[in-house]
């Protein structure tokens, strides 16, 4: 399937999507965070698309917004797509957890939570995975995080 095919197919599933990089090797889609879980479930269960493999889950700090980037692949058709969900609330960022749809997201969400402070609604155990349990110095991967020990560019 080409990117255009996927785009056409996906457009029938949901309307509020923004597409970009259609000529690259990977279609990028931006989706609102409220419909994210539904959207991913549809992508997974749709027989023609069957994006069933969560390749990566990346926490993002876009400067103004926070966000999560999901890379999905279909083990049947071998297309990779990128789905971005932006969260505008920096103080209390919340997004739906997708670990029920993709169990692979479980630990990745924990990672995004502790490095970016994104709360995943429905995740049963958002503890510290990489950082020490008593870490309270903020979220290290955010752009506005400053660490006295860290060298400047």
């Amino acid at each position: 399937m080409t990117n255009t095919d996927i785009k056409n197919k996906i457009e029938t599933l949901q309307s509020d999507l923004t597409f970009s990089q259609e000529d690259g090797d990977m279609l990028c889609i931006e989706v609102s965070k409220d419909t994210l879980k539904d959207f991913l479930t549809k992508l997974k269960n749709d027989a023609d698309l069957s994006f069933d493999y969560l390749f990566a889950l990346t926490g993002m700090d876009f400067g103004e917004d926070l966000g999560v980037i999901y890379h999905l692949e279909s083990t049947k058709h071998r297309n990779l797509i990128q789905i971005t969900a932006k969260i505008s609330d920096r103080e209390n960022p919340e997004i739906d957890s997708i670990h029920e749809v993709f169990p692979a997201a479980y630990y990745n969400e924990m990672e995004a939570h502790e490095f970016f402070g994104i709360k995943f609604k429905g995740h049963p155990d958002l503890k510290h995975l990489f950082l020490p349990e008593d870490w309270d110095k903020g979220f290290p991967m955010r752009k506005d995080y400053t660490d006295v020990n860290m060298l400047v560019r």
Partner: peptide, 17 residues
């Protein structure tokens, strides 16, 4: 823009984003 490259490392699907 976003770029992804995947290679097959000894452990599996190593991806760079």
């Amino acid at each position: 823009g976003s770029f992804v490259q995947r290679v097959e490392s000894a452990r599996g699907d190593f991806g760079v984003f």
